[in-house]
Amino acid sequence: MNLGDDLYREIILDNYKSTENRKSLDDATFSQEGFNPSCGDDVTLYLKTDGDTITDVTYDGMGCSICLASANMLCNSLKGATVAQAEDLIGRVKAMLVNQEQPDFPDGAEDLEAIAGVSKFPVRVKCALLSWNTLHQIVQEIKSKPSDR
């Protein structure tokens, strides 16, 4: 087995090392912390929304390369997306990682295909999913609030 091919693809390492999205947002509309008690990964997502549109999204926290790379990809793929598109993307990521379905991502989110190999490592799936589960919580919060438009 080649770990470099399966788990640590170069795109993952690039996303892990990228610091562009790794910061808090002072004017975030929504923020949510996600914590993985089994390994200590701890990621907070910050979302800035304008109506239904996610205008900015960042994260900070600490975690393994898979966890932080996945969070970084989340940020890159959600800027300018609608809440509905975010929800759709959560479903696609989970389908890929949990149900081992063939990855199928819209333009701008293709990097996420790089984490498909993680699905072969069950204990690492939760690392890749932490930021997406956290995003899911935020989406639920947005949907539970009456629109202020």
């Binding site: 770990l3 788990l7 640590y8 390994c39 600490m62 393994c64 898979i66 690492r124």
Partner: peptide, 13 residues
């Protein structure tokens, strides 16, 4: 600079 899980996964490989 390397998370313990990443070291663990590299050793696992």
């Amino acid at each position: 600079g390397v998370h313990p899980h990443d070291v663990g996964s590299m050793l696992d490989s």
